[in-house]
Amino acid sequence: MKNKTVNKSKTAAFMIGAIVLLLVATLLNICIGASDLDLEGLWKALLSGPDTSAAARILWYVRLPRTAACLLAGAALAVSGAVIQKVLANNLASPGIIGINAGAGLAVAVCCAFGWFTSWAIAGFSFIGAVCATFLVVITAQKSGASKTTVVLGGVAVTAFLNAITEGIITMIPDAALASADFRAGGFSAVNSGRLIPASIIIPVVIIVIWSLANEMDVLSLGDDTAHSLGMNTATVRNLLLALAAVLAGAAVSFAGVLGFVGLIVPHMVKRFIGTESRSVIPACALSGAGFVALCDLAARMLFAPYELPAGILMSALGGPFFIWLLWKRKGKRV
């Protein structure tokens, strides 16, 4: 039973570390920027309400919405990636593989092509596009039994098809390319609290629902035949989990644009430390994904201040080498 205790204490240590990272990242993200806030000023601005001083306005209208957006997007994308990797038994899977980015990208290109440039229109279109693309993938795979392979292949086919249409639109209508460029780079500079309201309800609720299905995810990962013989309708459960993952990632993409690597790298990092049991992986991904994105956004704002990099670009720039390092560290073992 010694191993069991070691596993549990490792998981507990990781969770504590992730919570500390999250709190530090949140605090730094709120306090540091073009105009810094010290702890005393932060406390005063929090208590006094939004319109009492310049510091309070910065806090309530800029820093808090932006930090909340980072936390929500990070948690949503990391959990979505963890679910997709588990359900498809594919460690290279991420929200992009089930068409989320391609669907959202096409919907935003269509939205911009029609001249609807408001942030609400872009958010709504990208969410609907992401979710519809996933349903298209699931329906495609359903025809052939919704096996893991057919979902991945369906995702590749649907992604290629939707990307081709998007490229066609932005080639024919240059305004659409310009207007959707921010969305495709991914970031939080255009976030405001109004845009966050739907996602701030959807994301926590869906994460809790997914967590309650942790046992289903683990049983599904035993293989379709074993899961089936344990009484599970594998196709239904797989599709349900993919749909929930799509809603999560779609909600994040709706206000943050396309953020690469979070859904791939954070679940990898988490599983490397605490194993693959979903009841631990889901909350650990939510916490560390939120902290990771908040830190990346902070770095994106500060590295070349006063210029700001889109967080999505920085994430890919940092995520790629980090992922290669992880692969090297795992040489000889399963990724």
């Binding site: 035993l222 293989g223 194993g275 399963r334």
Partner: peptide, 9 residues
């Protein structure tokens, strides 16, 4: 079944 996965659990 004949073939079984070896999950990390």
């Amino acid at each position: 079944p004949q073939s079984r996965n070896v999950p990390d659990i």
